[in-house]
Design a protein around this nucleic acid. Sequence first.
DNA 1: ATCATCTAAAAAGTACGACTAATTTTGACA
DNA 2: TGTCAAAATTAGTCGTACTTTTTAGATGAT
Lengths: 233, 233
Amino acid sequence: MQGISGDALDRLGGAIVTGAYSRGQVLRSEELAEWLGVSRTVVREVVRVLESMGMVAARRRVGITVQPSANWDAYNPQLIRWRLAGDGRLDQLRSLAELRGAIEPMAARLAAQRATAEQCGELIGVAMRMVSTAKSRDLTAFLAHDIDFHRTVLAASNNPMFQQLHEVVAEVLSGRTHYHLMPDEPLPDAVRWHTEVAEAISCGEADRAERAMTAIADQALIEMTDLLAGQTG
Amino acid sequence: MQGISGDALDRLGGAIVTGAYSRGQVLRSEELAEWLGVSRTVVREVVRVLESMGMVAARRRVGITVQPSANWDAYNPQLIRWRLAGDGRLDQLRSLAELRGAIEPMAARLAAQRATAEQCGELIGVAMRMVSTAKSRDLTAFLAHDIDFHRTVLAASNNPMFQQLHEVVAEVLSGRTHYHLMPDEPLPDAVRWHTEVAEAISCGEADRAERAMTAIADQALIEMTDLLAGQTG
DNA sequence: ATCATCTAAAAAGTACGACTAATTTTGACA
DNA sequence: TGTCAAAATTAGTCGTACTTTTTAGATGAT
């Protein structure tokens, strides 16, 4: 969505996510039209989209009511972006990291059962590139290959619900680097586990793939927990 | 979303999900207005919502293009409903069951670390009701308590991404009963595992909670796999 | 005084028409 | 044949008029 309409969506959605409008607050479409500087037509489109995300509810003779955040579609990519852009950044990152920790081991297991020969080849290749960039301490290139690796595993799981989470995983991995939640150079263990996942999937060894991926995810969760402890305590 | 606008959304969205429009097909808003029997204003709102779900993309001088299903927001509740209502029902149910199998063990682990005393009490209570309805072979009541149990665990995980999946879990559990994918009476093992999860969470034993929940989910996945084998082979 | 019922107002919902803007196609010209 | 300009096409935006639903308030009867 782009143009004036997408802009209005971005502003109103962002405002709601950052808490500019308190839960239960009632807005009127004409007010919104004035505030956003657009026609009521555009406001209606925006409201409809936010409604489909569970963020607002529109009722005749009442207005547009901001819904409690428990109703929001937490998996909506746009909403995730709003949350990551706002104050709740670290909370959101923790939620996503936990989600990732749950998903990826199962994805690795399924990938071991379902990956095509081509996907196996790509996995092995990416793992090798991870090893080499880890040795040369090129963190940027390492991150790119890391994201690529996990995207490939999710793709090989052959489950749309898992495949779609590649953006989430990419966000978590990037966030880790961006907030310096990981060592200055990749841990040798972590690199080895990636190789192990690639091998296990290629050999169709589901248990081994799941275990290795669990090791990767657990380590990431520990790093994340340490960070949040450092932030709050 | 309700009224004529919600109706139009439901019809167009449903048509796209069931494959009435092939991927890449281009629609024109005026055609859609005629087909749906609504004004272009309403069509625009509907298209905007479908656009935010990744199902279509609108471009000037081109039209409204149906996007490949890989782009669709697989977690959108409305989209899940459309898929469950159409031909892809069993595929969707399998995807959801796998997702659930990944999520719930981690949710149980987190719940063991975070559940409030009140939530623990509720869990124990629901587990006891599951035991009694299992004994009296009241499958309907058992299903209701089963759904309630898993919703409580997800809530206690204190992670919005997990909490939101309670509808998915409910759908999987209901689907199991509806398609007769489970025994005529609940397996004693399954009931015992639920009690174990409740106890482990109440005692703050994360590992034990995770293991017991894994047992529950694994069994459900096995049942689901058996079904699909029976369908296709 | 209280309850039911009717009425009026308020807000979103819908439709339509006019115009704008962007993008692709076409075709003329070099 | 290539380039650039014009035309055609389609979504985007706006404003207005009207409809429908829902709530609040007034009115009236018991």
